[in-house]
Design a protein around this nucleic acid. Structure first.
Length: 179
DNA sequence: TACTCGATCGGA
DNA sequence: CCGATCGAGTAA
């Protein structure tokens, strides 16, 4: 019985190709270990890429601030923030140090919606800036799943109309088509 | 210090 | 369609 996959290393997240990385994350597994032995792994089914200060949908559009500082870290750490005062949304920071980028985990197998993913897996802001490794209890594994190209849609990102037509329409959301 | 507005969700 | 709920960002 093969339970374990290969933990995706920080280096992988440090590419400058945030959109390509987001696409690549589809089919990988988000693994949560809340306590020793209590492990839950779910395949990632929906993501969105946010890249650079010029991307008006990205939180880094306002530059480096207390909240966005983590986006400038080298890829491979988590960015968890409070949205609408209610929901905590999970991102994996991407790119080399100094280049702000992140990928929002919008959905995993069996759970749709970024606010629900964090609620169901008990992910909160305490994980902000934590590394995506076994130590933090939250990481990403490659378990060898191949999602066929024709089963993945690229669409505009959700809920970012404020960014204007140019940025809100970029097809930087990747989602596994429903069965 | 005051004010605005969200990378959402559930209920009417 | 609307209200919840709160902190970051901005202006003053």
């Amino acid at each position: 019985m093969r339970e374990m996959g290969e933990i995706v290393k920080a280096k992988v997240f440090q590419t400058t190709d945030t959109v390509g990385l987001a696409r690549w994350l589809i089919g990988k597994h988000l693994v949560r270990e809340r306590a020793p032995g209590e492990r839950e792994a779910r395949m990632i089914t929906e993501v969105e890429a946010y890249h650079s200060e010029s991307d008006l949908a990205c939180h880094a559009r306002a530059g480096r601030t207390k909240r966005t500082d983590v986006l400038y870290a080298a890829g491979g750490v988590w960015y968890v923030y409070l949205c609408y005062g209610i929901h905590e949304l999970l991102n994996i920071v991407a790119g080399p140090e100094g280049e702000p980028a992140a990928i929002l985990i919008r959905g995993v197998e069996g759970i749709s919606g970024p606010g629900r993913v964090t609620k169901r897996l008990a992910i909160g802001r305490d994980l902000n800036r934590a590394a995506a490794t076994a130590e933090s209890g939250l990481w990403i594994e490659d378990r060898g799943v191949i999602v066929p190209e024709n089963e993945i849609s690229a669409t505009p990102r959700i809920g970012v109309d404020y960014a204007g037509p140019v940025w809100s329409q970029k097809p930087w959301r990747f989602v596994v088509k429903p069965r």
